[in-house]
Design a protein around this nucleic acid. Structure first.
Length: 114
DNA sequence: CGATTGACGTACG
DNA sequence: TCGTACGCCAATC
């Protein structure tokens, strides 16, 4: 592990929050970044998820979408359809790679988990 | 060590 | 209302 303790915490922080997302709910990168305290570093959340592959316990990255509810990270899964399939399996309706009723299924850690 | 990229978000025109 | 520009911070080239 060449990562600094601070950086390591950042990644672990993201993973932990993502794992806390209830089934049938989704959150946005910005919401996670804000909860961690990185501010507008929503891109860092994406980087963390990029390293989430192979993490145990499994990180439900399919529950993390952008602020529009669009499955922008679907292409990073085993297959582009895996993300949508998992979300639909959890009861989330996804049309055209976009989460329907996004306003209902949104789960903001800085609000719900506060 | 400097420049570019990246699973985003907000601001501005 | 829609399209474009810029900012965040870390990792990679």
């Amino acid at each position: 592990m060449s990562y600094s303790d601070k950086t390591y915490s950042f990644f672990e922080n993201v993973y932990e929050v993502v794992r806390l997302i209830p089934k049938g709910r989704v959150t946005s990168y910005g919401a996670i970044a804000k909860y961690i305290g990185s501010g507008g570093s929503s891109r860092m959340v994406g980087w963390a998820m990029n390293a989430a592959h192979g993490q145990r316990p499994k990180v439900p990255a399919q529950r993390v979408v952008n602020r529009v509810g669009l499955l922008t990270g679907r292409h990073h899964f085993e297959t582009p359809e895996t993300m949508q399939h998992l979300l639909e399996k959890e009861g989330i309706t996804v049309v055209n790679h976009q989460v329907q009723n996004f306003k209902k299924v949104i789960w903001d850690p800085s609000v719900e988990l506060l």
